[in-house]
Amino acid sequence: MTAEKLPDRFEKDFFKHESQQRSWDDLVVGEVYDTEPFEVTPERIQLYVEGTEDYNPFFTDEEAAKNSQFGGLIAPPTILTPIVFAAVPPDSWVKMPGAINPGQRWEFGVPVRPGDTIYCHIKLRDKYIKRGKKYAMSEMHITNQNDEFVCRWTGGLVLQFQGNEEMKNR
């Protein structure tokens, strides 16, 4: 297994591509997003375990995992978060500074395991205004290198910061 390699376009600084982000008004329901496959390394699993303080032995202890219902190491189910953040381009609305998460739903298939290569197909399934806030909602179909179903992830973000004058003056 190789060391983690994030896509060349991955950027930690969410402000860097802010000017290229399209506004909520420009998003078109039904559009799909360009993503890159992501290889899940033990390093990424360890970072995610530490970040979520979820030290279940099935995620990091080979012996414990071998004797489990999974028959080997798995990643925490919500490991899909860094996979998607790595996979989507830096100018995606998913990375808009100030975006607020209202909720998410994951329907799981086979677990993610170290060494897997994960593919995300992302579609904007809805956008709407509710109580003055602008929502963008996506649906992600996530599979692995064997074309097995890993997850159907539906959810979105509140992009209430769109057009805020303060953003331009930060």
């Binding site: 969410f14 500074p97 209430q160 910061f161 805020n164 303060e166 930060r170």
Partner: peptide, 26 residues
């Protein structure tokens, strides 16, 4: 901050206290 490293979600609303104070989003 550690969650940001693990999840690769570096949105400033989570990790930049000075910016969060300035925009006072919530």
């Amino acid at each position: 901050n550690k969650n940001a490293e693990g999840s690769l979600d570096f949105n400033p609303i989570h990790i930049d206290p000075a910016w969060a104070k300035k925009v006072n989003l919530l």
